[in-house]
Design a protein around this nucleic acid. Structure first.
Lengths: 231, 231
DNA sequence: ATTACTTAGTGTAAAAAATACACACTATAT
DNA sequence: ATATAGTGTGTATTTTTTACACTAAGTAAT
């Protein structure tokens, strides 16, 4: 940071905690910054909000530029506004989390070059982050951990068709605790928001499991039937 | 709004949904604006964030200027950033809720004069509000309704010493549903976060009820023992 | 002192939900 | 044919939630 940097006044920015579930691990997308300040540091994807775009739109745009994906599940979770959180001026940042289906494919197509690279990193293995991004990540992680216990957001991270074991693993990883297989299945199937398919897992060297889909319609009908998990 | 107004660039502001519980009703504090835009409209208390103060600080300051109170329970809940939410320019507002013990006294001492008046109004009887403040209020109300079911925030609205019936009424008002008296008491006392006092209600023309206090210590010990109410 | 009034305070039984727990089945690979 | 690895299933126990109604205590009026 040896160079002299321009000062600026108030700016809004967006930072995103983008979750993905891959190879049994919960990961987030980090970028390596190629600009001062914090050049070469890892950071959450984020950028300035334009004059004529809403913050929700800015969040979607940033996600798109980085992954080439649209229509992703995103939710605003907190706004960070300490005076000195940015060394160059007053930047208040609105944080969003997003959930992406990695589904093995993993082939994101960044549409911008504002970062030298973007990499999926397991949440249990994060490097030091720029600015107050560690704080932002922690709060975001806490939020989804809380939310997963009463809203069906886990499905956003799984492929469209998944096995109950995959679903259980995901819950276990996010809640950071073991769950009982029989009880998990009983409960999950009881909500009536899963649709059993006539299809089985493929390419495994053991008995293939049944595949399920999240049934949005049924869920919408039950509407605010909140889900309870993790106690 | 007939006058021509100055334009400005990006600004952060804070808006507060300040809850109070009085005479069995849940109320919020509204101000009547005495400046354009929306002159003479009712609005949530709010103001611009200064260059050198954090957003949390700004929220506390605004609350202080309006009520003369400090150290009040406040929590940030959402940030509103639509492009045209403010007619004069781009204003992104961070919304907080606060909870105030009205305790009969009700004698707030406004320290500023930025509003022509400030009045407590029952949440079921709100007038039209300026800007997108109705949306902000709704989201804030939704948040405390959700939060009250797993965190002991209700106590912030009651006098230090309260009866179980008062506590139950407050839950009923916020959750907008009747609760069973015996079950409510059983559950509430079971958490072990209430301290029974050697004191009784005074000045009532019927059998006086026992007074209780919220026991912060015990709660802190149980730490994240979350509370469940309203199902 | 009696009475009427109003709210406080209490227990139990039934239903529902959560938990703990273990083994046989099935597909594949060798 | 055998080993391997994960799938899929049921029951008994405990805990939590729900439904429900009367007596006790204090005040006010007569």
């Amino acid at each position: 940071m040896g160079t002299i940097l321009p000062k600026f006044d108030s700016v809004f920015s967006i930072d995103c905690v983008i979750f993905g579930f891959d190879e049994g691990e919960l990961k987030i997308l980090l970028i390596e910054r190629n600009e001062e300040p914090f050049k070469n540091w890892w950071a959450l994807p984020g950028y300035i909000v334009e004059q004529d775009e809403s913050i929700d739109h800015a969040a979607e745009r940033i996600l798109y530029e980085l992954t080439g994906l649209r229509g992703i599940y995103m939710d605003q979770f907190y706004t960070f506004g300490d005076v000195n959180r940015h060394p160059q001026g007053r930047v208040i940042t609105v944080a969003y989390y997003a959930m992406i289906r990695l589904s093995g494919s993993k082939d994101l197509k960044p549409v911008s070059n504002y970062a030298s690279k973007a990499v999926w990193i397991p949440v249990n293995d994060l490097p030091k982050l720029a600015f107050d991004h560690e704080k932002i990540f922690s709060k975001g992680f806490e939020k989804i951990r809380h939310k997963i216990s009463y809203q069906p957001i886990a499905f956003e991270l799984l492929p469209e068709k998944f096995t109950l074991t995959q679903l259980q693993h995901l819950y276990e990883v996010i809640l950071n605790k073991k769950l009982d297989k029989r009880n998990f299945r009983k409960k999950m199937l009881n909500y009536g928001i899963l649709k059993e398919l006539d299809e089985k897992q493929k390419g495994v060297s053991y008995r293939a499991a049944k595949l399920y889909k999240f049934d949005k319609r049924k869920y919408a009908k039950l509407f605010q039937k909140e889900i309870t998990f993790g106690k």
